[in-house]
Simulated assay, not measured.
Amino acid sequence: MSLSLINKRPLIWAHRGGRSLAPENTLAAVRKAKEAGADGWELDVQVTKDGEIILLHDLNLLRSTNASVHPVFAVNPPALPWRFALEEIKQLSANVFPRRFCPPKYKRQPWRDLPENLPDDLRIPTLVEALKLSRELDMWINVEIKDLSKAVPGSLGGKIVEKVLGIIREQSMDDQVVVSSFNHDYVRRSKEIAPHILTGVLTEHNFDGDPLEAARKAGADAWHPGFRFLTEEKVKAVREAGVAVNPYTVNEVEDMQRLTKWGVTGLVTDYPQNI
């Protein structure tokens, strides 16, 4: 596989696994995204106290899990992933929808009184589990490494790029992975360690710099911009230079159609079922 168009259409990336379909960054989400026709999925990784790599978007556990009411975490704030071991984090339920995606059956926050036998696909996964499922489903996986350079003390955050790449190699997923980050030093380091693994530089919606320069400095294969202020001219210039363009988070059909006409190579969306 490559980061090129498939059948003259962009690759469809399910954002955080497809968080309109199931709770974000869970294995349940990616299974549903595959059923909906996604080519791949985007996830976020961080590190635990014992050095394990887990899927989590926020720098704390409060929004996307039941940490605020779980006895282990409620009595030991703050609920930061790097303060707890994987065994403790695996006790949490990740069966939590963001309010705007929440189906009617979730309105009563059922995770507050879930039984102990909560399915594994509704707990916080490890990167190993995510890669294994991606291989099983034959899906691309975009591993966004959260910027831990200021948030996590000591060597825990400092070696996250090496840890992520080591896991990717161990799982023989080198050719189905894109490593991306808003921390472009992480992207550059990834390319230095594993030149054959594809990488992408993430930029904010209001990014006003030169995307080709940002990609060049990091040695990146792709540009992952916020789509709101993206222009056709920028997309074409980057594509003509041989760099892929995978904008996020594109949820409206009209935006998807416009960006497809402009020639983007991928679309990151919460709604893979709408494409």
Rank of each mutant, 00 (worst) to 15 (best):
R19M: 04
A36V: 02
V30D: 12
K107A: 06
M1T: 10
S2C: 08
F227A: 07
S181D: 02
L59N: 09
E252G: 05
N142W: 09
T249K: 01
E232G: 00
P125M: 03
A222D: 13
L156F: 08
A218I: 11
L92N: 08
V72D: 14
S134C: 15
T126M: 12
A241Y: 07
Q176R: 09
T126P: 02
I53R: 00
A151I: 13
L133E: 02
L43Q: 13
D185F: 07
L118H: 10
L61K: 00
P195W: 13
P78D: 04
D174I: 10
A85Q: 13
K163N: 01
E42L: 09
F229I: 07
I141N: 03
L11N: 08
G40M: 14
R63C: 01
A130F: 01
L148D: 04
G166Y: 07
P119G: 15
E129V: 12
N7A: 06
A36G: 01
T65A: 00
S149L: 08
W111V: 02
S68I: 12
P104Q: 12
T48R: 12
A33Y: 03
R31F: 05
T203R: 04
L156V: 05
V128C: 07
R169H: 10
A79L: 09
A29S: 11
P10H: 06
V179H: 06
K236F: 11
K163E: 01
G37V: 13
A151S: 11
V47K: 09
S93H: 07
L137Q: 03
E116N: 14
G226R: 03
V268M: 12
V178C: 15
R108D: 15
L80R: 14
M256K: 13
S20I: 11
I124A: 01
V235R: 10
E162N: 08
W223L: 07
L156T: 10
V69S: 04
R258D: 05
K236M: 11
Q171H: 08
W262Y: 00
D221N: 14
L21T: 12
I145C: 09
Q171K: 13
G226Q: 04
D50C: 02
V187W: 03
L267N: 02
N25M: 11
D185Y: 08
T126S: 12
A74D: 07
P225G: 08
A218L: 08
L21G: 14
R135A: 10
L148R: 04
T265R: 06
D174H: 13
Q176C: 05
V264Y: 04
C102R: 14
N251V: 08
V75W: 01
H196Y: 15
L21W: 14
E170A: 15
A241D: 05
E52M: 05
V161S: 14
A22S: 07
L137H: 11
D44H: 03
N25A: 09
S4V: 03
I193V: 07
I193H: 05
F84C: 06
V243E: 05
G219R: 07
S93I: 04
W262D: 08
K217Q: 14
D138W: 10
P272H: 01
L62P: 05
R63G: 00
G200I: 06
K261E: 14
A67Y: 02
A194P: 07
D113W: 06
P195G: 13
R100I: 13
F84L: 07
